[in-house]
Amino acid sequence: MTATNPQAGESKTGTKVMTMLEAINDAMKVEMRNDDRVVVFGEDVGKKGGVFGTTMGLHEQFGENRCFDTPLSECGILGAGVGMALYGMRPIAEIQFLDFIYPGFDQIVSEAAKMRYRSGGEYTCPMVIRSPYGGGIRGGHYHSQSSEAYFCHTPGLKVVIPATPADAKGLLISSIRDEDPVMFLEPKAIYRHAKDEVPLGEHTVELGKARIAREGADVTVLCYGAMVPVCEKAADLAAEDGRSVEIVDLRTLVPLDERTILESVKKTGRVVVVYEAPKTGGFGGELSAIIAEKAIEYMEGPIVRVAGFDTPFPYSLEHLYMPDPKRVAAGIEKTFVW
């Protein structure tokens, strides 16, 4: 498909090559045009366009009321976001780095997540919390955390993590339109590395649906975010040893697409769960448990996890901390020979 006059007008057709950054930016532009209830706010998102550039141009295009800078206060950002959502807006709150979200954790867990439930549906919180997460940029302890597990463990929240530009756009638009609070976690390591055709205009990807990134027959690799390209390289390595690897990109962690996962796992009989977060208590444990509970008789080998280590995210040793293709490939092999 080729882009037909991508610069002009509301309804666009065709695709354009974009980085994930650009795709996220495009999603917000599309929705802000579509729906004047959508507002974007956070630290440095206005004039500067965000420390990574994800909100570039929004302040210019939509003005101070629709895209604005906030004081340095995650608690304020998120609490105010909840308030805006209650009042009928569609707030997109940006938290500069997921590592900084904790002062606002209370507003997410106690308020946003429980609003619909505690009010019997009278009050709802259709807020999107966008935040770059994960390592790979030499950010050390406080610019690299992959803490999605805290949010997966909070009923009432949805957790979405794209791995491709097209999915980033489609999932973000769907998240904005979703009636529930969504944690939209952006894998910063591939903000610029992920580059692909992205449909122009209103492109949506359904939440709660995984994607088969690669078909295979011998072993299933479950992954999300920046780990997807790592797993693709690992699958290439495994192919050299004659292993045909199927890669499932989860895309949404909560609600989880169990069906696609179980179908794949039952087909191959072997599974490796890859996540860069610290191993203990990570979301990969949940995936392993689901497989053990619902597909145990199909398992030809152990359910292997390849994860980050149970230490704070290190600066100098980042390259050893994060799962890389060789480590994932070793994990794949372990499902055959253990």
Partner: peptide, 12 residues
């Protein structure tokens, strides 16, 4: 004695 090791699919 008496405990046999095998993968779940093998057992099935």
């Amino acid at each position: 004695p008496g405990k046999v090791l095998a993968a779940p699919a093998t057992r099935r």
